[in-house]
Structures are given as structure tokens and as C-alpha cells.
């Protein structure tokens, strides 16, 4: 096997992109939806994003206006709601509560001692 080379580019620009990606893969792997169902929504989101960005510019930008993984995330959210895996109200409330109270640091998250005497 050829020596492992460093990746040419970062796979994910932000940690949340990786989580959104993994959620779609895992839900599909567990049989909660077919990949084609996810892809159909992703295509819709990319197309909607593209057309909204094209209205202001004669040449569409190189990337969807709000970013590829934002389209991915909207597709994921729509599909989980449509499949009844989540409720819209529950989701909005959970987002509000996470925003209001950032998770406390735990030992598991810390890379440094919590306290040095």
C-alpha cells in the first residue's frame, strides 16, 4: 500500500458539518430512510439556494449561497420531521434550551486538568 499522504483539503470546514453528515449516514444505515429520499431533498435545497443566489448575480457563485452543508442540514431536518423521528416543537425547544444553557464542561471534554492545586 502506498504511504499515507496527508489529505489535500479538509473534509469538513466546521465540526457541525461533520455531525450533520454523520447523522444522515447513520439514520440511513439504521433504515430510517432511503438514501434516495435524502438525496431528493438535498437536491431541492441546493436548487433553492442556487436560485436565490442567482437572482442577485449574473453569474452564480462557485458555492451555494449558504453553503453546501447548510443545504445538507436543511434536507436532514426536513426528512427527520417528515419521518416523524422528531417533532418541530421539540426541536425548536431543544435548540432554545441548548442556546440558553451551554453544556457544562465535563471531565470527558477537557484536555487539561480541571484544577491544578
Amino acid at each position: 500500500m502506498a504511504p499515507e499522504l496527508p489529505p489535500e483539503t479538509e473534509v469538513f470546514a466546521e465540526p457541525w458539518e461533520a455531525r450533520a453528515f454523520a447523522l444522515a449516514i447513520e439514520l440511513q444505515a439504521r433504515g430510517h430512510f432511503q438514501w434516495a429520499e435524502f438525496r431528493a431533498r438535498l437536491i431541492e435545497e441546493i436548487a433553492a439556494d442556487q436560485s436565490s443566489s442567482s437572482m442577485n448575480e449574473s453569474h452564480p457563485g462557485p458555492e451555494p449561497k449558504s453553503g453546501y452543508y447548510q443545504c445538507w442540514l436543511r434536507a436532514l431536518e426536513r426528512l427527520t420531521l417528515a419521518k416523524g423521528l422528531l417533532g418541530k416543537t421539540d426541536l425548536d425547544q431543544r435548540a432554545d434550551s441548548i442556546a440558553a444553557s451551554p453544556p457544562a464542561r465535563t471531565r470527558a471534554q477537557g484536555r487539561e486538568p480541571i484544577r491544578i492545586a
Binding site: 466546521e14 455531525r19 431536518e77 427527520t80 426541536l91
Partner: peptide
């Protein structure tokens, strides 16, 4: 994430989806 800033935007949305699921 080693800071305690409140999350917003897509990061918050993903976190909410993941935590519920």
C-alpha cells in the same frame, strides 16, 4: 469545544437534532 459560548445557527440546529435523536 472548549469554550462555553452559546451556540447559534447551524451548529445549534445540528446539536439539537443530535441530542433529541
Amino acid at each position: 469545544r472548549d469554550h462555553n459560548e452559546p451556540e447559534s445557527g447551524p451548529a445549534l440546529r445540528v446539536k439539537a437534532i443530535e441530542s433529541l435523536l
